[in-house]
Every structure is written in structure tokens, then in C-alpha cells.
Nucleic acid binder design. Structure first.
Length: 646
DNA sequence: TTACGTCCACTTTTT
DNA sequence: GTGGACGTAA
């Protein structure tokens, strides 16, 4: 690995804590990896080093690159997201963290539980009192934000000034019920993982000494996205360990998760005596790509003091392709990728970026039509698919009889069992000593050889391997699910379940399988049969990656800034999202627009509206609506009526 | 209490 | 195309 002088200086850092402030494409990750290698070279044991990343994808990539550098030793380094690392640390002393029996729940379950809590606080909605109670998803969002930003939720809600006293009391009552039920069901939500780890490490000195004593170095990627809660963890860890953080304030795009990019600026005060290193030379992109990126930041009222210079020199100007609509954009992108591939470029040298998972759909459609292999990063995971959740509900109740949300889902699968009956039964089975007992209870309650007791017994009879257990669950639910999904691509869904069994094969116990699957759910499209494929990704998921050719689909009004952005801060975060997107490109950047796009709400402009023509080459797309449709239809030889397009 | 039809909004970003 | 909220019939 070749490093420049400033990178080498950072890697060779010899003091206590260090912050590496690095612009996009300046070799942040390379420096982080080189630092880990350097520490190993200095004789630090691999298990004394922690590497924290921000997304699961970044974890995978970091591990891969580490393996290239140091081989098998990479396996023994602790690499992971904050959540993964916290769980690993807590597992060192499960008793100290009260971690013996629990189920980790994802956002959907959390929302489900919030819905139950919400219904309980105002069970008899007598008109407007109930209707003023916000939706479960909104309640989860607020609670989660407050916890990550480490603000008492009451204080946070008061500061938002959205409620009168009565409403606030209701909301807080829902939160109280939520916490109670979470405890009785033995759930850990994503925030609890961090919170519990931080609380114990901070409050219990002996535990902290034992746990933190094992760690000498903590290397953190994307430090600008660290939330207040995560900072607390870092503070606990750095009492013994040395921090080495890399980040870029201009790439902070996780404020919604409680991150405050300004903490990068106050790093030296936060972490006394820290050395700060700067990386300014961009190795990734051509100057033309950086000119647009620099322009975007310079337009901001905030001072980022970033002016990236391309070491690689000049290339071709970014393209601004104007299409009639989204479909035309997708087709243009697919056509252009096809052309490049025909000319010898591998699919994997191209990336299509989108602001939202939803807006990837037109691109996906176009790729499918053209037969372009693609992998979609982000979006609906296999876990979210409802048939997979059905099977997991069965597995989860087997692991945790108090798993209320899973019981509700499982029991209401049966004909004749609705919310009320299920809720009554949940109380009963929760009090059971064993799964066997629970099954017996259910059989007494509903003496049906094809009833809800049977899959539980079936599961009890299969214990040879994790895959065997999952297969047993799938088999036991098969007739039920076949009926439930008979009109909804049951054959395809069944294949997902077979995939689930194959994945289960990798895990030693059912408990670890279920836990890992929640923490790192496979994305259905990740399981691509082809090695060489185009990547379609959200900008958030693409952070830290790069590609020769980057298409930014739908660089339109309503997307950058996204119409959800309300105030100045959120608008500026949107600018950074766009900045992250632009700086992914190595050789070519292609911006796709449909100028007539109008937002029904939110900002009525796009940052790129004021882009000076000199910075890009504007292309009027040839694929007008009608022509686009003809290209599309000629692929399978059928020319449908133009009116069928909508 | 459950099942089912219909209307509705909804699709930011991740762990 | 999905899932929730709501009304109504059995």
C-alpha cells in the first residue's frame, strides 16, 4: 500500500489520540487500514484493536481490504459497526450487562411494539383524544432520536413545541408503556444495545476496567457521523484506549440519527491533547469531477474550507443529461451502461446512485429490461419480506416465550384467531416454563391437529442443526403460508424460504442465527448469481465507496434537497448528501435530470439548478418519451401501445 | 371477535 | 404495490 507524506505522518502517529481530517477521496480508509497494520507491526495484539465503521457494508469492505493487507490476522481484529462492537463487548461479560436472555428487535418490531403500547394508553378512542396521538412510526423516530442525541425524550419533545400539555402526557405515557413491555418481552432495540453498553461501562468501574482494559486502540471511520450516544462509548473506551479517528465534516449525512458534524470541529476540546492531521490531496477523481463538488460546497452558507485538488489531473467534464421523465432517465442510464459494457468496461465499474430506495425502481426496471445484471444496496431486505417474518416469528417464540410481537404475528396467522384472542393467549404462553408447555396450552385452547400448537411441537422434534430447525419451521408453516400467499407469488416466496434455510446452515445455534439475521439481514438482491454486476445504491449506503463511472439518477427538485428537509440544517445536510454522491466518481460523473419535475411540497429548487454551464456538458437526451418506449419494447420484439405507459 | 372490503397515505437516509 | 385505518357483516 503506497501512502503519501501526510498519510504516512498520520499513520506513524505516536502520541495519544488523533483525528485525521480528510476530504473525499483523499485516502481516508487507506490511512485507517495502514494505521491498523502499523499497530500490528508495533506488536499490538489483533484482539486489542477495535475498528468501528458506520454501515455493515463498510464493515465488509474494511475487512476485505484488511485481509488483503495482513491475511488471516484480519479475522482476529474486532471490526464492526458500533452496534456489533457493543454486543461483542457485552458478550464478554453477559451477566454484568444482564444479557442472558434477550431478543434483538429491528425497526419494524419496534414500531409494532409501539403500536401495541399506543393502543393500550388510549384503548377506547373517544373521538379526538386518540386521533391526536401520533403514529407509531413517528413515536419511534422521536424516541430514537432523543436517545441517540442523549436528550431526555420529554425535554426533546418540549423543545419541538408540537404538543399541548395533555398530548405530551399521552405521548410520554405511551413511551412508558413501550419501555415496560420491552422489558417484559426481554427485547433489546438498536438503541438499547448502545445505551446499555455505554451505561454499564460508565457507571460500573470494575466492569469498565475489565472490558476496556482489553482494548488498546480504537480506530473510528466516519467520525463526523458519530452520535452523542456513540461519543459516550468512545469516551468510556478512551480512558484506557487510544482513539484514531478519520472523518470529513463535509460528508456528514446522519444528523437524523443523532450525529452532529460540528463535533469534528471541537474534537481537540472534546479529546484533550489530540493531534490533528489533514489529508487534502484527492487521488480518486479527475479535476472536472472535483470542480463540480467544490462548487457545490462553495455555494453553501457554511464554511467547509474544502477545495479538493486532483492529483490525477484532468479528464472529461461531467455530463448533465436532461430527460423527459424518470423512465427515460432509467432507460438512458441502462442504454449508456450497455454501450460501455459492449466497449469492454466491466459492469462493476459502474454505479447508479439514488437518493431514496424508492427512486431506484425505474433504474431497476430499465436494467431488467436490458438484461443488465445489477445488485441493489439498501432497500427492502429479505428480513422485511412478510413471509420471512412469518417464519422468523415461529423461530423467535421458540427462543423467547415472552416475545410478544412474534407471538402476535404467529398466532394471528391462523384462521379464527384475531388480535383479541392472540393477546389473551400471549399472556398465557408467556407464563409457561417451556415451549412444550406453551404448545400444550395452545392445543387445549384450540384442539386442532392443524392448529398453532403443531409447528411448535414439530420444531421441538427437530434439533439436529440450525438449518434443520429452520427447515422444520418452514415445513410446518408451508400449508398455511401457501394459502396466505397463494395470489402473491408464492413460488418466488418459497424460494426465499429455501434461501433462509441455506443461510441458517452457517450458524451454530438458532439463537445466533436469529440474532445475526436481525443485525445484518441479507438483502434479497445481494444474492446475485453473477459476479460482475452494476451496483445500484442509495447515496447513504454508497458512502466510502467509489466507481469509475457514477450515474446520479434523479438529480431533481424534491431529491436534492429532499422534500422532507424542513429547516436550514436539514437543507445543508442534503447538500452534503449530494456532495457525497458527486465525490464517488473516479473518471466520469453523469447527472440525470428531468427539468419539469416539481415538488408538491418542500424546497422548490435543486442545488444543481444554478450549476454553471462551464462545469458540465449539457446533453439533451435523445430518448424522448416515445422513443424511450420504443427502445424498451424492441428488446422483446413487442411494441405495445404508447397509452399503456402509465 | 373476526374477516373482509375499501379508501388512504405512503415511500429519506441506517443500525 | 403495500400496509394501515376504518366500517360493516357474519
Amino acid at each position: 500500500m503506497l501512502l503519501n507524506e501526510s498519510q504516512q505522518r498520520a499513520v506513524a502517529h505516536d502520541g495519544k489520540h488523533a483525528l485525521v481530517l480528510a476530504g473525499a477521496g483523499t485516502g481516508k480508509t487507506a490511512t485507517l487500514i495502514a494505521r491498523a497494520v502499523e499497530l500490528l507491526r508495533r506488536g499490538v495484539r489483533p484482539d486489542q484493536i477495535i475498528l468501528v465503521t458506520f454501515t455493515r457494508r463498510a464493515t465488509r469492505e474494511l475487512r476485505e481490504r484488511l485481509t488483503v493487507e495482513v491475511g488471516e490476522v484480519a479475522e482476529r481484529l474486532r471490526v464492526g459497526t458500533f452496534h456489533r462492537i457493543c454486543l461483542d463487548l457485552m458478550r464478554l461479560e453477559p451477566d454484568a450487562f444482564d444479557l442472558r436472555s434477550y431478543t434483538i428487535i429491528d425497526e419494524d418490531d419496534r414500531e409494532q411494539l409501539m403500536r401495541l403500547a399506543r393502543g393500550r394508553v388510549l384503548p377506547n378512542d373517544d373521538g379526538d383524544r386518540g386521533s391526536t396521538l401520533p403514529k407509531a412510526s413517528q413515536l419511534v423516530t422521536w424516541l430514537s432520536y432523543a436517545r441517540n442525541a442523549n436528550i431526555p425524550v420529554q425535554q426533546y419533545l418540549e423543545s419541538q413545541k408540537i404538543f399541548d400539555e395533555q398530548q405530551l402526557a399521552n405521548v410520554l405515557a405511551v413511551y412508558g408503556t413501550y419501555e415496560e413491555r420491552k422489558t417484559s418481552a426481554k427485547y433489546l432495540d438498536f438503541d438499547d444495545i448502545l445505551r446499555r453498553c455505554a451505561t454499564i461501562l460508565i457507571s460500573q468501574r470494575a466492569v469498565r476496567e475489565r472490558i476496556v482494559g482489553r482494548i488498546l486502540h480504537v480506530l473510528v471511520d466516519e467520525i463526523q457521523d458519530t452520535s452523542t450516544l456513540q461519543w459516550q462509548l468512545l469516551h468510556a473506551l478512551r480512558q484506557k484506549a487510544t482513539l484514531f479517528c478519520v472523518g470529513d465534516d463535509a460528508q456528514s449525512i446522519y444528523a437524523f440519527r443523532g450525529a452532529d458534524f460540528k463535533t469534528v470541529h471541537s474534537f481537540a476540546e472534546r479529546v484533550k491533547g489530540a493531534d490533528i492531521y489533514y489529508l487534502t490531496q484527492n487521488y480518486r477523481s479527475t479535476q472536472e469531477v472535483l470542480d463540480v463538488s467544490n462548487w457545490l460546497l462553495a455555494e453553501s452558507p457554511l464554511k467547509y474550507n474544502k477545495e479538493l485538488q486532483a492529483i490525477r489531473g484532468h479528464g472529461s467534464k461531467p455530463l448533465l443529461v436532461e430527460c423527459d421523465d424518470d423512465l427515460a432517465q432509467g432507460l438512458w442510464v441502462a442504454g449508456d451502461m450497455d454501450r460501455r459494457h459492449a466497449a469492454g468496461a466491466p459492469w462493476q465499474s459502474m454505479v447508479v446512485l439514488v437518493r431514496t430506495a424508492f427512486s431506484a425502481r425505474t433504474v431497476e426496471t430499465a436494467c431488467i429490461e436490458r438484461g443488465i445484471p445489477y445488485v441493489f444496496v439498501g432497500g427492502t431486505s429479505l428480513l422485511k419480506a412478510s413471509h420471512v417474518r412469518d417464519v422468523l416469528a415461529l423461530l423467535r417464540v421458540a427462543l423467547n416465550l415472552n416475545d410478544e410481537v412474534a407471538w402476535m404475528r404467529y398466532l394471528t396467522l391462523w384462521k379464527g384467531v384475531g388480535d383479541r384472542t392472540a393477546e389473551r393467549w400471549v399472556q398465557q404462553v408467556g407464563a409457561c416454563e417451556s415451549l412444550q408447555q406453551a404448545a400444550e396450552f395452545l392445543y387445549r385452547a384450540k384442539p386442532d391437529p392443524k392448529g398453532p400448537a403443531m409447528p411448535l411441537l414439530h420444531l421441538l422434534a427437530h434439533t439436529t442443526s440450525t438449518a434443520d430447525q429452520v427447515a422444520a419451521a418452514v415445513q410446518a408453516l408451508d400449508p398455511l403460508l401457501a394459502t396466505k400467499y397463494q395470489y402473491e407469488q408464492w413460488e418466488q416466496r418459497k424460494k426465499d424460504l429455501e434461501l433462509l434455510i441455506r443461510i441458517a446452515n452457517r450458524f451454530g445455534t438458532l439463537a445466533t442465527f436469529v440474532e445475526e439475521f436481525v443485525l445484518d439481514p441479507l438483502h434479497a438482491t445481494q444474492v446475485s448469481p453473477q459476479d460482475d454486476a452494476v451496483t445500484v445504491s442509495t447515496v447513504h449506503a454508497a458512502k466510502g465507496t467509489e466507481a469509475d463511472v457514477v450515474y446520479l439518477a434523479r438529480a431533481d427538485v424534491g431529491q436534492y434537497p429532499h422534500s422532507h428537509a424542513r429547516d436550514e440544517d436539514e437543507i445543508e445536510e442534503e447538500r452534503r448528501v449530494l456532495y457525497v454522491a458527486l465525490t464517488r466518481a473516479r473518471d466520469e460523473l453523469i447527472l440525470m435530470r428531468s427539468p419539469e419535475h416539481i415538488a408538491s411540497w418542500g424546497a422548490q429548487y435543486c442545488f444543481l439548478d444554478t450549476l454553471r454551464a462551464g462545469l458540465v456538458t449539457v446533453v439533451e437526451s435523445g430518448s424522448r418519451r416515445r422513443e424511450a418506449w420504443q427502445i424498451l419494447s424492441s428488446l422483446d420484439g413487442v411494441v405495445p401501445d404508447i397509452d399503456d405507459m402509465d
